[in-house]
């Protein structure tokens, strides 16, 4: 495995009965890269991601994540990745601090480390005033930022984000992307699955999945040039409509 690649997939395939959900996809993601994994609902994004994070066994093909094999070392993969989704993020009925402590515990951080991290994180996000409030009472944007920070608690090599910024107001959304850029500049690889094409514009490189296959993979700039359109949305429309 190339030392610079934190994800390498080769002909990765998943079948459900006769149905091929993921059809021999191959790609690499470099260390510190923000990689957009795009596709319509049902294109196979989620299935592919589940294989990468070690919760679903591929039918065929090879893949290594953070240097570990998805077939044999699923447990090691889980220790080295973070995950955040818009649907499931934090417990609404726990306070900010309790959530951090809980997830720190889950990721196997020592009590001392959790304390340090928790302090640091609350300060960075400017949550000192609300650290003892229930997460459910916080505005959506704060929750998402907190949730992202929590997914980075154990300093994972790769963090997987599932449609992270849908529905957030534009300013909070930018603050969120600033956090992503920061994580990436510190060497964390960010893997974003989304079907919102404007999220794609922020990524270093994007792949677009259509019907289980990766139909395009390049920087947003190159893709827009290649398809001669103004934005990623139109790239997607051209690809999906064939």
């Amino acid at each position: 495995m190339n030392n610079n690649n934190v994800i390498e997939a080769q002909d990765l395939t998943k079948m459900f009965g006769d149905f091929t959900a993921v059809n021999a996809i191959s790609f690499e993601v470099k260390k510190g890269e923000i990689f957009g994994f795009l596709g319509a609902n049902g294109a196979g994004k989620t299935t592919a991601m589940k294989m990468l994070i070690g919760i679903s066994k591929p039918t065929a093909g090879k893949a290594k994540v953070a240097g570990f094999d998805v077939y044999k070392q699923a447990e090691d993969i889980k220790k080295n990745i973070g995950y955040m989704s818009q649907k499931f993020a934090l417990y609404d009925d726990l306070t900010v601090k309790e959530n951090i402590t809980f997830f720190g515990g889950i990721y196997g951080l020592s009590r001392k480390r959790i304390k340090e991290k928790s302090k640091l994180l609350i300060k960075e996000l400017g949550l000192e005033e609300v650290e003892n409030q229930l997460v459910g009472s916080l505005p959506l944007g704060w929750k998402q930022k907190l949730s992202f920070s929590v997914s980075l608690l154990h300093d994972p090599k790769i963090v997987f984000l599932d449609e992270p910024t849908g529905g957030v107001d534009p300013i909070t959304r930018r603050q969120f992307w600033e956090m992503i850029y920061k994580a990436a500049s510190e060497g964390t690889t960010v893997f974003v699955t989304t079907h919102y094409m404007d999220e794609a514009e922020y990524c270093d490189r994007v792949s677009i999945m259509v019907n289980g296959k990766i139909e395009a993979l390049d920087t947003p700039k190159n893709l827009k040039q290649q398809f001669n359109v103004a934005n990623m949305n139109d790239v997607f429309l051209k690809l999906a409509r064939g």
């Binding site: 534009p170 300013i171 930018r174 992307w177 600033e178 850029y181 920061k182 990436a184 500049s185 404007d198 514009e201 922020y202 920087t219 947003p220 700039k221 934005n231 990623m232």
Partner: peptide, 24 residues
């Protein structure tokens, strides 16, 4: 060449009125 550094620099620039990441 580096978006994160660019953002930090622009945010620190004293003449800025607004700085927002916007796609690429």
């Amino acid at each position: 060449n580096n978006t994160y550094q660019l953002l930090n620099s622009l945010n620190a620039y004293r003449h800025n009125h607004s700085v927002f990441p916007f796609g690429e």
